[in-house]
Nucleic acid binder design. Structure first.
Length: 767
DNA sequence: AGCACGCCGACT
DNA sequence: GTCGGCGTGCTC
């Protein structure tokens, strides 16, 4: 009976394929191995999922000819078998081909087109050979060992060889009998090369290639000692969480704690507990900025048992980290969203820090949410999932109130620092001496004062400001759709306002519907422009900017933070990424340039994002002795997301937000799937979107699901491609799943190949 | 995805 | 006559 395998191939195929044992091979191939398989006339990469049966349940022969696996690329699996159900679930839930899911999950696997592989880095080291071993084992001084070697070789050692061996013995002792790198000896004795080679030939030394683990930590991170004493709140929270870990059953928790309440120590204790119970731990952070913050804490506590996985690593570093996890050497993984795929086994706790962060959502290819997958991993591993946040997502908090998740609260800041006072500046109501700039006099004066005192300022720019929405210059209202309560988008070319949820349009009225003012205009402020204005206002100040444009590489990011820490920077300007995790004792002023900019987004989550960003930015001040000052500029000081952020009142914000979403049936009262269409020909794209909408309405048009649209996407044209979208909204996740499956089955009939169609399940933003 | 096949327009 | 455009179908 011939062995056959189920193989997920690196091609957009809906199902795995069946292949047989490579010619001439007898041993079975373990699941998780990377192989090369024939597919049509080419060869592609595939992943072995396990044995396959050639007959279907009815006993029928397959209708295809089974081909043999061409090559086993790696004899050791790239991922543990236990994760296969996890990958299958993801493929099904996100409607993504399994082979492509695996390619996303295993970033270092070779691709079908490039055979380039990242390899282990090794170095040549030397260990004692057979001739040297027994004199070493009988102990004695270096001189005695050398004499014994000389004796057993009948005095065949030359002076230079004697010298090289003597240096080797020194290094061996000082290195605690670890293999001695050849390069180390060559540095001390440049001519040692041929001598060492001869010593190897004589059997005195042994040459070994040792794996080198490239150090992703750059310089050694700051050491954080383990605090002897926990706060009462930390104690209480752990009293709930540790027993849950001991029960070894799935249990989701939201750890709701204000900035600076000491959540990190809670995470560390949970991980410690997992390790002492022989389990492993998975810790996710939204982005690299926070990864480097937490890295130092985790590295201090767990050292070599820690692996980090994030986009800031080089391929080589990532390879090493992945393999450390795979071999079981690293038992704690700390990383960004893709670390949710880390090849850990026996996971004892899953932690997601800042769980509300939009950065957990991957916005291209496999559009997964790292936070949601983390919860799923915990479920499959039968362990607790801990979602930490100072501003939990509306959906997670809703689950807490309905008994789906357990809420744990930490209200006190560790050092009892008071939260800073937050001042709102109403941009619409205040006179400005520089109306040409984005700054009010109050903020300019505060910046000047801070600069004079030698303290630092942080300026937060909500870069999501969208230049084509309409803002009232008098009351700050943003024009919204009457049906969807999302902002209308201005289409300059056609001169009309459109809702990108439902597609309805309205003429750009010359008067503000809220206050009747005629002063309406399109708006948008980015961090580059702010930097320019600040340089103009304070030419003598030292200014740095951090945003996704300037932070493509981690070295620059870390260097900028270092410059701020050593007070070589007076003013730091940045976007979201500077809003969290960072704390600088001399940063006494935090300014928010335009707090309500995010409210202009055509997105039902706009208020939630605004609240959490403001709450986070606010937490950045007052970390040192000085409580700090926060100035928030806004056109909408009375909007609940701005007003309640000022008072650090999450519960009130949640209540308001839920009251808005309930009647509109947005999550958590429904699930969404956004179907995106794009293509080079406008007509084809619009037509395909229309046909799909018609198909779904005909098949499923009842009151259990809303099919909204189709409508042009907010960025209708991107890189010459026209984009349309169709939004599905339903209380039934199963119904949405069935609709998407039916749609994909009919895709060929509804949507030509020149139009690409992709599904975004649980969309995070609608752009 | 990638690679075949197949069916219509302007070229040696 | 045929070279080559890209719409469509299939891959164990």
């Amino acid at each position: 009976m011939e062995l056959t395998y189920e193989v997920a191939v690196d091609a957009p195929l809906a199902t795995p394929l069946t292949y047989s044992q490579p010619a001439g091979r007898t041993t079975p191939i373990p699941a998780g191995c990377c192989v090369r398989v024939p597919l049509g006339r080419r060869k592609v990469i595939g992943y072995v999922l396990g044995p396959a049966s050639l007959t279907d349940p009815a006993g029928a022969e397959p209708a295809f000819a089974v081909k043999a696996i061409a090559e086993v690329i790696d004899e050791t699996p790239l991922f543990p078998q236990t994760l296969i159900p996890f990958y299958r679930w993801i493929a099904r839930y996100y409607h993504h081909p399994l082979g492509n899911v695996l390619r996303t999950a295993l970033p270092l696997a070779p691709t079908s087109r490039s055979g380039r592989r990242v390899s282990a880095k090794t170095r040549k080291t030397l260990t004692p050979g057979p001739v040297l071993l027994s004199p070493l084992q009988s102990g004695g001084t270096t001189e005695e060992v050398l004499a014994a070697v000389e004796y057993s070789l009948d005095g065949r050692l030359k002076n230079a060889e004697h010298k090289a061996l003597s240096l080797f013995l020194d290094d061996l002792r000082s290195g605690g009998n670890r293999p001695v790198p050849r390069s180390l000896l060559l540095r001390r004795y440049p001519g040692a090369g041929p001598r060492l080679t001869r010593l190897v030939d004589l059997g005195v030394l042994c040459s070994v290639n040792e794996r080198v683990y490239r150090d992703p930590f750059g310089q050694t991170p700051v050491f954080h000692p383990r605090p002897a004493q926990l706060t009462d709140e930390q104690q209480q929270v752990l009293e709930a969480l540790l027993p849950a870990m001991d029960r070894a059953a799935f249990a989701p928790f939201v750890l709701f704690g204000v900035t600076g309440c000491g959540k990190t120590e809670v995470y560390l204790r949970l991980v410690e507990h997992a390790l002492t119970r022989g389990k492993t731990a998975l810790v996710l952070v939204p982005e690299i900025a926070l990864a480097s913050q937490l890295e130092a804490h985790f590295y201090s506590r767990f050292g070599a048992r820690l692996a980090v996985l994030h986009s800031g690593l080089s391929d080589g570093e990532r390879f090493d980290q992945w393999h450390n996890v795979l071999t079981g050497e690293a038992r704690v993984v700390l990383g960004a969203r893709s670390a949710v795929f880390a090849p850990l086994e026996h996971v004892g706790v899953v932690i997601v820090d800042e769980e509300h962060e939009p950065a957990y959502k991957q916005e291209d290819g496999l559009r997964y949410n790292g936070r949601d997958l983390a919860v799923l991993r915990a479920k499959m591993a039968e362990c607790p999932a801990v979602l930490g946040s100072a501003t939990p997502s509306v959906v997670s908090y809703h689950h807490c109130l309905h008994g789906k998740y357990t809420l744990l609260t930490m209200r006190k800041r560790v050092a009892e620092q008071p939260l800073p006072t937050v001042e709102l500046v109403d941009l619409a109501a205040t006179e400005r001496s520089r109306p040409d700039l984005a700054f009010s006099d109050r903020l300019i004066n505060a910046m000047a004062q801070t600069l004079e005192q030698g303290q630092q300022t942080l300026l937060f720019v909500n870069r999501r400001g969208f230049s084509s929405s309409m803002l009232c210059r008098d009351c700050g209202a943003i024009l919204q759709c009457r049906h969807c309560q999302v902002s209308m988008t201005l289409h300059r070319s056609r001169n009309l306002l459109m809702c990108h949820y439902c597609g309805s349009t309205q003429h750009p009225s010359t008067l503000c519907p809220a206050c009747g003012s005629p002063r309406l205009s399109g708006v948008g402020i980015g961090s580059e422009r702010i930097e320019e204005e600040v340089r103009q206002l304070f030419p003598e100040a030292r200014i740095a900017r951090l945003d996704s444009d300037t932070t493509a590489n981690r070295r620059h990011y870390l260097a900028t933070l270092q410059a701020v820490r050593t007070r070589q920077v007076d003013m730091l300007i940045g976007t979201q990424m500077i809003a969290k995790g960072l704390h600088f004792p001399h940063m006494t002023l935090v300014g928010v340039v335009w707090a309500d900019a995010g409210l202009a987004m055509p997105d039902y989550k706009a208020a939630e994002r605004t609240y959490s960003l403001l709450a986070q930015v606010t937490g950045r001040a007052g970390r040192g002795a000085d409580p700090g000052r926060v100035i928030i500029q806004t056109y909408q000081p009375s909007h609940y997301s701005v007003r309640l952020a000022q008072h650090h009142d999450y519960e009130a914000f949640f209540a308001q937000e839920i009251a808005v979403r309930r009647p509109l049936g947005y999550p958590p009262f429904s699930r969404l799937v956004n179907i995106r269409f794009s293509g080079l020909k406008e007509q084809q794209v619009a037509q395909a979107a229309g046909r799909v909408a018609e198909f779904l309405r005909r098949q499923y048009g009842n009151n259990q699901v809303d099919v909204l649209g189709p409508s042009p996407a907010p960025l209708v044209k991107l890189k010459d491609r026209t984009r349309w979208q169709l939004l599905l909204k339903s209380g039934s996740s199963a119904l949405l799943q069935a609709m998407c499956e039916a749609l994909l089955a009919e895709k060929a009939e509804l949507c030509p190949r020149s139009v690409s169609m992709s599904l975004d399940v649980d969309p995070e933003n609608m752009m």
